[in-house]
């Protein structure tokens, strides 16, 4: 059903959002290494998962978010090491590169959709990794490169900027969800061909959303380099980045606004809990983490948000169709 079950009034949503944003900022400023680390990881995960979810919401399932992430990392690192950029300045080339590659990918893939689009993004990410290995003069090749430590503004500032960036990006996605573009993007996801007959120009919206999402994910990649300070092609274009960017929205509620937020907090929390309880047995925490993820996806096919509110971004799985409310019901 399309009608949302009202679980709390509008002001409560605002209060909750403000509370979460405040908690992120406080954790960043607390000076505690653990709190800062958790806040930083939630922030970067939140950014890439919002980015992934926005693209998915337009029917563009990405298997190559690590491409944006890795390019952002390289753009930030190289602008610091080669051009002497400061921390804040280094994030700008990261976002520009992300937006450009997103726009180009949208243009190149044209009308390719679904699984074919996903494969293109995966190929881009793998291709970029190989290119990064083959350009040792620029990237340091397989040996990697170290960020110029003299430019580091200190971990607190980095975490704070990441947190504020995440809050802003959630805000942007909220704005988008209330705009007319939302209708165009959802129409494209559902049926790009039919949407054209209503005057929607798919390529335009596609380029715009992929540039936006590319910039977001590259921002996250760009800021991430300031935490570790080390980058090599394998780390930059790691597949796990892509996987994480999908797990969070799917757990929280795919295609929904709060989905990535809930999902990011939940994934990091799950990871921490399993690590703290079973951390001393090698591999056990990962096993438990993976098992929990599977259980949650099976039990809550519409994510946490979907389960609570009855909003489902996705159609149920085809084999469950008998359970789906149909129109006979409505008439």
């Amino acid at each position: 059903m399309a009608v949302r079950k009202q679980i709390m009034p509008g002001w409560a949503w605002w209060a909750l959002s403000a509370g979460l944003a405040g908690a992120m900022v406080i954790a960043s400023l607390s000076g505690s290494a653990i709190a800062g680390d958790v806040a930083f990881r939630i922030a970067t995960l939140l950014i890439i998962s919002v980015s992934w979810n926005l693209m998915a919401g337009a029917g563009l399932i990405s298997l190559g978010h690590s491409a944006f992430w890795g390019l952002g990392s390289y753009a930030a690192a190289l602008s610091v090491n080669k051009l002497g950029f400061s921390f804040a300045m280094s994030l700008i080339p990261a976002m520009i590169v992300g937006a450009l590659i997103g726009a180009c990918l949208a243009g190149i893939t044209g009308r390719i959709r679904g699984i074919y689009f996903a494969i293109c993004t995966l190929a881009l990410s793998e291709g970029l990794r190989v290119v990064a290995v083959m350009l040792p003069d620029v990237t340091g090749g397989a040996n990697g490169l170290y960020l110029d430590a003299s430019k580091h503004p200190g971990p607190m500032i980095v975490t704070l900027v990441a947190s504020i960036g995440a809050i802003l990006i959630v805000f942007v996605s909220w704005l988008l969800s209330r705009s007319r573009y939302q209708f165009a993007l959802r129409a494209m996801r559902d049926n790009e061909s039919a949407s054209q007959m209503l005057g929607i120009e798919p390529l335009r919206y596609r380029v715009a959303i992929m540039a936006l999402c590319g910039a977001m994910a590259s921002f996250a990649g760009g800021i991430n380099i300031w935490r570790g300070g080390y980058l090599d092609p394998g780390v930059a274009f790691e597949l796990i980045t892509t996987i994480n960017s999908q797990i969070a929205p799917i757990l929280g509620g795919i295609y929904t606004l709060p989905g990535p937020v809930i999902g990011s907090i939940l994934t990091i929390a799950l990871g921490e809990i399993t690590r703290l309880t079973l951390g001393n047995i090698i591999g056990a925490s990962l096993l438990l983490y993976g098992g929990l993820l599977i259980v949650i996806v099976l039990v809550l096919p519409n994510g946490v948000y979907g389960a609570v509110t009855g909003v489902s971004g996705i159609r149920r799985f085809p084999f469950l169709r008998g359970k789906q409310p149909r129109s006979e019901a409505a008439s």
Binding site: A187, A194, G199
Partner: peptide
Amino acid sequence: GRTFQITQPFVEMSVLENVMTGALF
């Protein structure tokens, strides 16, 4: 404007949202 023989509604939108998409673009 046209309709399709094999109907092509935006299945994940409500009826109203489908029509609104027509009215917005």
